[in-house]
C-alpha cells in the first residue's frame, strides 16, 4: 500500500475514483453493445442522466452542510409538473411558481437552521407536501413541455452529444462557484467546521439559505430538464431521484459529513448510476437481481474508496 501511495497519492486516487468508475462502466457498455459507441448511442444512453445529475448537484449542496434532503425527488416531480403545465400555458405564472419553489426551499433551510431541527425529518415531511402539490396540479399524468425546452433538450450539437456538453457545463460552473470562489470556501467550511466559520463572522443562517436556495434552483433545473426529455409530466415522475441523488453524491466522492463534496464527482456519480442501469439491462440480467446488482456496484466503488481513505490516513 505504501508503494502505491508513493506512486499515486491517496488524495489523487480519491479524486480519480469517480472518473475511473465512469470510464470502466462505459467501456463495459461499449463492449457489450457496440452500437452505443456512437453519437446517437451516447445521446440515448446519457440523456436521462442530465436531470439526475442536476438533482445530484442539488443534493450535494445540502450534504455540504451535513444535512440530508429526502424531499428532492418529490420537489423535482413538482417542478416538472409546473413546467409541463403553467410554464407552458402561462409562462409568467410558471416562472413565478418556480421562483416561489426556490424561495420555499430556502425557507426550509432557514427553518432547519433556526429551530435546530433534524434535516431528515423536515425534508421527509416536505417530500409529502411537494408530492401533494404535484398531485393537486396534475392529478392525472399529462401536460406538455414548452417547445423551447423540448428543442433545447433534443439539441444535436456537432461532434459531442448534448448530454455530455450539458454535464461538462454544469459540473464546471458549480465547480468554479463552490470550489474556487471565496464564498464557496465559506459554504463548504460551514459543513466542515461550522463553529469556526461562525466565529470568523459569517452568518450560518445566510450560508444555509444560500445552499438551500441553490439546491432549490438546481431542483427546478432538474424538473425542467426531465420534462424536456419526457415531453410531459406525472406527479410521481421523479420520486426515485431522492435516493439516486444521495447515491450519486457519495459515489462521486462526497461524504455525509464534513463539507467534503465534489461537483465534478457528483455529476460523474450520477452518470455512473444511470449507466449502471443500462449496463445491467444490456447484460440481460433478471430484473429481480437488478436492484441487488446496482447495489453491488455501489458497494464495490465505496469499498474501493474506503481502502483509499485508509491509505490516506496512513500517509504522512
Amino acid at each position: 500500500m505504501s508503494a502505491l501511495a508513493r506512486l499515486a497519492p491517496p488524495r489523487l486516487l480519491r479524486a480519480l475514483l469517480p472518473a475511473v468508475s465512469l470510464a470502466a462502466i462505459l467501456a463495459a457498455i461499449f463492449w457489450l453493445q457496440p452500437r452505443t459507441a456512437s453519437y446517437f448511442g451516447l445521446n440515448l444512453l446519457l440523456n436521462l442522466s442530465i436531470p439526475i445529475a442536476l438533482a445530484t448537484i442539488a443534493q450535494m449542496f445540502i450534504l455540504c452542510v451535513n444535512d440530508l434532503d429526502l424531499s428532492i425527488g418529490g420537489y423535482v416531480s413538482l417542478t416538472a409538473c409546473i413546467t409541463a403545465t403553467w410554464l407552458n400555458d402561462t409562462p409568467a405564472l410558471g416562472v413565478l411558481a418556480l421562483l416561489l419553489c426556490v424561495v420555499a426551499y430556502a425557507a426550509m433551510g432557514a427553518l432547519i437552521h433556526l429551530r435546530q431541527l433534524p434535516s431528515i425529518v423536515v425534508t421527509l415531511g416536505m417530500s409529502f407536501v411537494w408530492l401533494g402539490l404535484a398531485v393537486l396540479l396534475l392529478p392525472t399524468p399529462g401536460g406538455q413541455a414548452p417547445d423551447w425546452l423540448r428543442a433545447l433538450m433534443t439539441l444535436k450539437p456537432p461532434y459531442v452529444p448534448f448530454p455530455i456538453v450539458a454535464a461538462v457545463v454544469f459540473a464546471l460552473v458549480v465547480h468554479v462557484g463552490l470550489m474556487r470562489s471565496a464564498y464557496g470556501v465559506v459554504l463548504r467550511g460551514a459543513g466542515g467546521n461550522p463553529r469556526a466559520v461562525e466565529r470568523a463572522g459569517w452568518s450560518l443562517l445566510h450560508v444555509k439559505l444560500t445552499l438551500y436556495a441553490l439546491a432549490g434552483l438546481f431542483g427546478v433545473l432538474a424538473g425542467m430538464a426531465l420534462v424536456g426529455l419526457t415531453t410531459s409530466a406525472d406527479a410521481n415522475i421523479a420520486l426515485r431521484y431522492t435516493l439516486l441523488s444521495i447515491a450519486g453524491v457519495i459515489l462521486g466522492g462526497g461524504e455525509f459529513v464534513g463539507g467534503r463534496v465534489s461537483p465534478i464527482g457528483a455529476v460523474m456519480g450520477a452518470m455512473t448510476l444511470t449507466l449502471a442501469g443500462s449496463f445491467l439491462s444490456f447484460l440481460r440480467l433478471n430484473p429481480d437481481w437488478q436492484i441487488g446488482a446496482q447495489g453491488a456496484i455501489l458497494i464495490l466503488v465505496l469499498a474501493l474508496r474506503a481502502l483509499i481513505n485508509r491509505a490516506e490516513r496512513r500517509a504522512p
Binding site: 452505443t36 444512453l45 440523456n47 436521462l48 406525472d234 444511470t274 439491462s281
Partner: peptide, 24 residues
C-alpha cells in the same frame, strides 16, 4: 425478450426503452 424495470418508475422505464432502441 421480456424486460422488466427494477423499480416501477417512469424515468427507469424511459431509460429501459432507450436501451432497447440501442439493442436494435
Amino acid at each position: 425478450d421480456a424486460f422488466t424495470t427494477a423499480e416501477n418508475q417512469v424515468t427507469e422505464q424511459a431509460a429501459q426503452i432507450q436501451n432497447l432502441i440501442l439493442q436494435g
